[in-house]
Amino acid sequence: MFRRTASTSARALPGFGLTLGYTVLYLSLIVLLPLSALLLRAGGLGWDQFWETVTHPRVVASYRLTFGTSLAAATINAVFGLVVAWTLVRLRFPGRRLLDALIDLPFAMPTAVSGIALAAVYSPHGWLGQVLEPLGVKVVYTPIGIMLALTLIGLPFVVRTLQPAIADLERETEEAAASLGASRWQTHRRVIFPSILPALMTGFALALARAIGEYGSVIFVSSNLPMKTEIASLLIVSKLDQYDVGGATAIAVMMLFISFGMLLVINGLQRLASRRYREAL
């Protein structure tokens, strides 16, 4: 047991120096060097200029839109993802394998295709857009459209993190709950839900992180108007189009910080949830 964890390198297998060296070199060139350029460039801006850029009303509006729609989309995915994951793991019905396979489609689909597809369906002339328009619901070119796009691209995360957690649930604990007089609803709420909550939060966090950075699908369904429907990624691109590389860098770094902070909070909550669950065991 000890030898596996503590051995510095088993002489029996070759290639350690070569493979680790290549890994570190490639990682440094492709990932670390460019990312450090981002941080150094932002550091070179000077605090005043940085702060002025990232607190400009147009920029603040873009954060609000980005994080607001991302949170909404991740929440929708958490709710429906839970239903879908439960259905896939626990229920047997014709077409289950197809449904299961389709969940990954947003991973495989270019985001531009997702965007153009949603625009086609939910624009005022689209199949569903013309149904919704008379009801006063405008989807495309509004924050609702952005939310819809972010829901689509975040769909697999919640389902795929929940599936193993639900599969790991022991039927015995549910039977034990039932034998102790719990109703099915009480079992769901007090036994099942707490034990899959950490996985649900992980999926939520992944969907959220993906949504915050999303660009390709959103620009097709948004009118991209400053202060109204302009997401942060788009703002970075327009700064670059105006050759304002410094401004783009400042917004990018600010976004990294905010999403990092949000993930930290979610991770903390998740740890809390899983600890409570472990204590309950």
Partner: peptide, 28 residues
């Protein structure tokens, strides 16, 4: 196949590009 110090850091760094927004990936 090998044990070495800093392995977890390395694994985390490999995942790093997933945490970077696409337009920022271009920007860098």
């Amino acid at each position: 196949k090998f044990e070495f110090r800093g392995k977890t850091v390395l694994i985390t760094l490999i995942d790093l590009p997933f945490a970077v927004a696409p337009v920022v990936s271009g920007l860098i």
